[in-house]
Nucleic acid binder design. Structure first.
Length: 425
RNA sequence: GUGCCAGUAGCUCAAUAGGCAGAGCAUCGCACUGUGGAUGCGAGGGUUGUGGGUUCGAGACCCAUCUGGCACCCCA
């Protein structure tokens, strides 16, 4: 075999069956986004590194972005996330836009990571944001969108859950433990890692960060306190609204949820697979009230989330949520070719049907019928039209259904009445 | 970026202890040159991821490298 140039590490080839899944996902995302009145937008795939430098997590910019110089030497970044672009786009037209603003997007992103299950270097993300409102009602709307989406693609509350917390609440609680605000970022990192480390290890890590034994105990109590949300008017209100929307079975308070990105200011949430084997989070988001001002706009509150396609696809596969009919071949019918001399008849019929809006393929070779039928069968094309000397002599065609095996003769004079209804169905 | 595991036909995998590279499925052909899925017979298909080394001899052992998977790191 000749040598095939390998694809770029961490990228994926979308063969038709993979592309069908991606398109199906896109259609669901589009439908849900629009149902809630969100408008589609997109930004450039290339951005200057400075856009991310101040606001995203340091790790994301320094370690995980594709950065390269262009021909003039300027540093170009393949976008690792969309939120800073969104913030810029809004800030640029802030005076002209009408708020509250509801925008959504689905497109490719790049992160320089070690590829493994659930993680690739090129992936797609759904971003959806509600900008200009700082109420719990706005946060609840985003959560409601997530639940609607999960329901639409067939994920139940026993399979996936959204875990929610509030950074403001956590900061207040840390202050009550006499942990000063300037140390909160470090303590948040500590919370983020707790579930991944052995307790002993975590405890000594906590001590290394300068926490006293009583502060560590206090912190542990906080992280086990499932009633802690009752100290947050924001969360109380959110749960209240979600209750009336009857979507609360999908949502759970979890004081361990902090999120890695630095720009979150209050509500934070993350959806996870709770019934299966995929450990990574499906989506993450929250409120980021300071980001617009940070990219040079006037202060403007915002809430939103991002969902990657890689983890979600794994979970959908695991639960068998991907409908099999999305792989269907676009053609409804194959028009066979009896011989090279008779190919024009087949071609003419194919054109005629296409003009009536039927998806048709021809067989561009006078192969034996066996082969042509087998082809249609393998490609899952439901109908075959046979057009040989017998049919032509009687101004007719034979239509065979590959599903039932039945074959009928139809006169050219009654194509509209007899053939089209079958093929259109 | 770090550590561990894996890579053999298009796919899934086998190959005692280092000794002739195989099977099933798929593909193609024939039985059947105007009727698919089934069956039978036959055929093609490999520099064992790549490059080096040890050995009379390497798919197997050693080194490097690439790709994938797992755990870190981080995150969608």
């Amino acid at each position: 075999m000749k040598q095939i140039i390998s694809p770029i590490k961490g990228t994926r080839d979308f063969y038709p069956e993979n592309m069908a899944v991606r398109s199906w996902l896109y259609e669901n995302i589009k439908q849900i986004s629009q149902r809630y009145g969100y408008q589609e937008y997109d930004g450039p795939f290339l951005e200057p590194i400075e856009l991310y430098a101040a606001k995203s997590g340091e790790e994301l910019v320094k370690e995980q972005s594709f950065v390269f110089p262009d021909r003039s030497g300027d540093l170009i970044t393949l976008r690792p996330e969309l939120t800073p672009t969104l913030a810029r786009m809004v800030a640029q037209k802030q005076k002209q836009l009408v708020f509250p603003l509801r925008w959504w997007s689905f497109g490719p992103f790049w992160r320089y990571e070690k590829p493994q299950k659930g993680r690739s270097r090129e992936f797609f993300q759904w971003n959806i944001d509600l900008i200009g409102i700082d109420t719990p009602e706005a946060d609840a709307e985003l959560l409601s969108i997530i639940v609607s989406f999960f329901k639409a693609i067939g994920l139940s509350a026993a399979q996936v859950k959204i875990f929610i917390n509030d950074r403001k609440l956590m900061e207040e609680q840390l202050c009550l433990l006499d942990i000063p605000p300037e140390r909160h970022t470090k303590v948040f990192r500590l919370i983020d890692r707790k579930e991944k480390m052995e307790f002993q290890e975590w405890e000594s890590y906590a001590k290394g960060e300068g926490l006293s034994s009583s502060q560590i105990n206090g912190l542990i109590n906080l992280l086990h306190d499932t009633e802690l949300w009752k100290n947050s008017p924001n969360l109380i209100r959110i749960f209240q609204i979600l209750e009336t929307e009857a979507v609360s079975e999908y949502i759970e308070f979890d004081p361990n949820i902090i999120r890695g990105l630095d720009y979150y200011t209050s509500t934070v949430f993350e959806a996870k697979d709770v019934g299966g084997s995929v450990r990574r989070s499906i989506l993450g988001g929250g409120r980021y009230d300071d980001l617009l001002a940070a990219v040079g706009g006037d202060p403007l509150p915002a809430v939103g989330f991002a969902m990657g396609d890689v983890v979600l696809s794994l979970i959908l596969q695991e639960y068998g949520c991907i409908p099999s009919d999305i792989f269907a071949h676009p053609a409804r019918v194959l028009v066979t070719t009896f011989s090279q001399e008779m190919f024009p008849y087949s071609l003419k019929l194919a054109h005629q049907l296409r003009e009536k809006g039927i998806n048709v393929v021809t067989y561009p070779e006078a192969a034996n019928l066996n082969k042509q039928l087998k082809y249609a069968d393998r490609m899952q094309i439901p109908y075959v039209i046979l057009l040989g000397p017998d049919e032509i002599a009687q101004n007719s065609l034979s239509l065979k259904s590959l599903k039932s095996g039945e074959q009928i003769r139809i006169s050219f004079l009654e194509l509209d009445e007899k053939l089209l209804p079958i093929l259109a169905g």
